[in-house]
């Protein structure tokens, strides 16, 4: 059986908020390393991979591998009943048809108990190879979100170029064009506010802004985001949490 307790409900609430517009139904795979999820969007253009590691739980017990088939819209409805500061306990049997969620406030005088019906989901899993990326950019997640939103008002696509000059996001649309260039600028006092660029080779790729704007819904998970790029392969965007991560992969647009 599974029993997993989070000190703060906000962790799972933020993860679900971050991915629910990308995927609808997905398996939460529970095993002795924690709770993991991998799911593609319907068009097979984007993929989300999530891992909440056991270290992030106040209590974690999972005797055997359990797949919790969850509709994320339904899960979000139940999670609305949890206050951010509530302790959350997830429980499921070995072959569950429901997930039990218990929310307790810090004063220990309110216990909310919910059951969420589970589904059988036959999900395709992709093998994602270890990749040495040509360029890796670490920057404030809020700034990346702002750039994606601003450029998405002008165009459907963004060209991302990483050179030794910096990283340039540019787009061209019906009303005009726009570009934002970030130069390496490490912040010694507050590393989460700095921008660092590791460049192995120049990279130039084009991506759909609709997906990037969607990924930025994970900005609440981390002050920083890491963008990894190589020519002609999917980009990787990672939001690292204290004990886990949410990663997004996006296939590039080529030759248009």
């Amino acid at each position: 059986m599974l029993e997993a307790r989070l000190e703060q409900s906000s962790v799972l609430k933020k993860v679900v908020d971050a991915i629910k517009d990308l995927v609808q139904d997905c398996n939460f795979d529970c095993n002795d390393s924690g709770i993991q999820l991998q799911a593609m969007d319907n068009s097979h253009v984007a993929l989300v991979a999530m891992h909440l590691k056991t270290e992030g739980f106040a209590l974690y017990r999972c005797d055997r591998n359990i797949a919790l088939g969850i509709n994320l819209v339904s899960l979000q409805k139940v999670l609305r009943a949890a206050q951010n500061e509530d302790v959350m306990t997830l429980k499921a049997e070995d072959s569950p048809d429901a997930l039990s969620l218990v929310f307790e406030n810090s004063e220990n005088d309110r216990i909310s108990e919910y059951d969420l019906k589970l589904m059988d989901i036959d999900q395709e899993h992709l093998g994602i190879p270890e990749t040495e990326y040509g360029a890796t950019v670490k920057m404030p997640s809020a700034e990346f979100q702002r750039i994606c939103r601003d450029l998405s008002l002008l165009s459907e696509s963004v060209a991302i170029e990483a050179t030794k000059e910096g990283i340039k996001f540019s787009c061209t649309g019906d009303i005009g064009k726009g570009a934002v260039t970030l130069r390496q600028n490490p912040n010694v006092e507050k590393p989460e506010l700095g921008t660092t660029i590791e460049l192995q080779e120049p990279v130039a790729l084009t991506f759909s802004l609709k997906y990037l704007v969607n990924f930025c819904k994970a900005s609440g998970l981390s002050n920083t985001v890491t963008i990894s790029l190589s020519n002609e392969v999917p980009l990787l965007i990672e939001y690292e949490m204290e004990h886990g991560y949410v990663r997004f992969y996006l296939a590039p647009k080529i030759g248009d």
């Binding site: 253009v45 993929l47 899993h125 093998g127 084009t206 392969v233 080529i254």
Partner: peptide
Amino acid sequence: PSGQKTLLSFFGLK
């Protein structure tokens, strides 16, 4: 959309 690749052309199914 034109030129939009899918992940299936890069990553294999497990």
